Simulated scan of single mutants.
Amino acid sequence: MVSFVRLCTVALGLVLPISLGAPAAPAAQADGQQAVLVDAEIGGKSIRGRVVDLDPERRVRISLHVKNDSVQSLDVSRIRISGSVLGMTFYSYDVDFAFTVSPGESASRTMEIDIRDLVDQAVGLMYARVELLTDDRNALGEVETVVDVHGSPWSILGIFAIALLVLTTLLWVNVLLTLAGNRLPSNRFRRALRFVPAGFGTGLVAVVSLAMLRIAAPVGVVEVPLAIGCCLVVFVAGFLTPSPPE
């Protein structure tokens, strides 16, 4: 039981650097200004600053608008549309769509994507990106948004949420049984550290649950404070637990 719980702790620990990682920055000029400006429209409206509904039963029609402010031609080979939670990608569509934008010029293109399999991949609110890629799959530019996927609760994301809940529950059961059996370290700092994995797991469960229930999007301003906040609260709670008898 203890070995399995330790394995759960390691698994949650592997999620930490992923969930706190930042996406790659788009191409930029030497003076720091963005060299490639990208916007995308779905349903005739820009996807920036709003929640975009994705219904797997309907094909998605995307209009891309690209402005090339760099000094080189922009050779786009494919478009990638992806969605993630906790820094982990749960769906990704790569579509071959080649076009070139000359320096100082703008271009608009329209494409349709069949997303019927999305119903089995995700559900709820997700952080999403539309990226322009070269033939070597290097990013030329991107636009970010939040999507609301009308998928199944038994999708890959739903199963991941259940697994995360089970792992976190096992961590809590282990640490609380250890506390009840007076087997925690007598040193308060070391005792508090024993609670941190369960607190971190609680934060991750909260992020995924809020996203699936469409309460809060899993973006950095939500993910990081929740994960770190739960860790700190649980750390303090563990620090204040009574010392085991001598």
Rank of each mutant, 00 (worst) to 15 (best):
residue 86 L to N: 10
residue 88 M to Q: 13
residue 31 D to Q: 08
residue 51 V to I: 14
residue 57 E to G: 13
residue 97 F to P: 04
residue 86 L to E: 05
residue 127 Y to K: 13
residue 83 G to V: 12
residue 123 V to N: 10
residue 125 L to M: 09
residue 109 R to M: 12
residue 94 D to V: 08
residue 49 G to K: 02
residue 138 N to P: 00
residue 96 D to M: 10
residue 119 V to N: 05
residue 113 I to C: 00
residue 69 D to C: 05
residue 107 A to P: 06
residue 108 S to E: 15
residue 48 R to G: 02
residue 137 R to L: 15
residue 136 D to L: 11
residue 56 P to S: 07
residue 46 S to V: 02
residue 69 D to K: 12
residue 55 D to P: 03
residue 117 D to P: 09
residue 40 A to H: 06
residue 116 R to Q: 09
residue 92 S to E: 10
residue 141 G to P: 06
residue 52 V to Q: 04
residue 140 L to S: 06
residue 111 M to E: 09
residue 77 S to I: 12
residue 76 V to G: 10
residue 120 D to L: 08
residue 123 V to Q: 12
residue 120 D to C: 00
residue 43 G to K: 11
residue 100 T to M: 10
residue 102 S to F: 10
residue 71 V to K: 14
residue 127 Y to T: 07
residue 100 T to E: 12
residue 78 R to Q: 15
residue 27 A to V: 11
residue 109 R to Y: 05
residue 123 V to F: 04
residue 94 D to W: 02
residue 56 P to I: 08
residue 123 V to Y: 00
residue 147 V to K: 02
residue 121 Q to I: 01
residue 58 R to K: 14
residue 28 A to W: 05
residue 42 I to N: 02
residue 100 T to G: 02
residue 145 T to A: 04
residue 64 L to C: 08
residue 58 R to N: 12
residue 36 V to D: 06
residue 111 M to F: 15
residue 87 G to I: 05
residue 56 P to Q: 04
residue 95 V to A: 04
residue 104 G to T: 14
residue 117 D to E: 11
residue 138 N to Q: 15
residue 55 D to F: 09
residue 146 V to I: 12
residue 104 G to F: 12
residue 95 V to M: 03
residue 124 G to T: 06
residue 57 E to C: 00
residue 96 D to G: 11
residue 106 S to C: 05
residue 46 S to I: 05
residue 78 R to C: 09
residue 44 G to V: 03
residue 47 I to G: 02
residue 36 V to N: 06
residue 94 D to R: 08
residue 66 V to M: 12
residue 125 L to C: 06
residue 128 A to C: 12
residue 43 G to W: 08
residue 146 V to S: 01
residue 60 V to Y: 00
residue 90 F to S: 01
residue 113 I to S: 02
residue 36 V to W: 09
residue 77 S to W: 13
residue 27 A to P: 00
residue 60 V to P: 00
residue 128 A to I: 10
residue 117 D to H: 12
residue 123 V to S: 04
residue 142 E to K: 03
residue 141 G to Y: 05
residue 34 Q to R: 11
residue 38 V to P: 01
residue 49 G to C: 03
residue 97 F to L: 14
residue 88 M to E: 04
residue 75 D to C: 08
residue 34 Q to K: 08
residue 75 D to I: 10
residue 136 D to M: 09
residue 141 G to Q: 07
residue 28 A to G: 04
residue 119 V to M: 03
residue 145 T to I: 14
residue 82 S to G: 14
residue 115 I to P: 07
residue 33 Q to T: 15
residue 121 Q to L: 15
residue 52 V to W: 01
residue 49 G to Q: 03
residue 129 R to M: 09
residue 90 F to T: 01
residue 62 I to R: 01
residue 112 E to P: 07
residue 127 Y to G: 08
residue 144 E to F: 02
residue 129 R to E: 11
residue 133 L to C: 08
residue 52 V to K: 01
residue 71 V to H: 15
residue 76 V to P: 14
residue 138 N to C: 00
